[in-house]
């Protein structure tokens, strides 16, 4: 019986989709920055500023598809680490929010995104270790 293993196939497909989306992101980002710096009417600036969201949405779709097609334990590990990442980010965000009230500089919403992704990455091996 040589049916392809869906979990292995999902890993491969995700790697390909992620690489292509990130490549598209870099290309679109460069185009977007170049065009914006040319000096466009504000409405067009808005369009080009939002353009890199499209390849990012593809990354999101790839992640959703990936988590949906791996086996139940691998999915559980990802979801548990994502839940931990959300909690850690919430704690960090609230902590920094309080620090802002006593004069620390206001941070961009970008940091929230970075915090979730970094926390997910860090949490994953710790969660996975519980099942080893």
């Amino acid at each position: 019986m040589k049916t392809p293993n869906p979990t292995t196939a999902a890993n491969r497909r995700y790697a390909i989709e992620f690489a292509l989306s990130m490549l598209a992101y870099v290309v679109v980002l460069v185009i977007s920055i170049t065009v914006i710096n040319y000096g466009l009417p504000p409405a067009w600036k808005l369009v080009f500023a939002l353009l890199p969201i499209i390849p990012i949405a593809f990354v999101f779709a790839a992640i959703v598809r990936y988590v949906g097609s791996i086996d139940e334990l691998q999915r559980r590990i990802h979801i548990e680490s994502l839940a931990l990442a959300a909690g850690i980010t919430a704690l960090l965000a609230v902590t920094y929010g309080f620090l802002e009230t006593v004069g620390l500089p206001h941070l961009s919403a970008w940091f929230t995104y970075a915090a979730v992704m970094v926390a997910w990455l860090i949490a994953r091996p710790f969660v996975a270790r519980r099942y080893r």
Binding site: N5, T7, T8, I70, E72, L73, Q74, Y131, R132
Partner: peptide
């Protein structure tokens, strides 16, 4: 793992 369509790590955890 291949016969069950799961990761090798999963069969190990089982």
């Amino acid at each position: 793992a291949d016969r069950l369509g799961i990761a090798r790590q999963t069969i190990n955890a089982l």
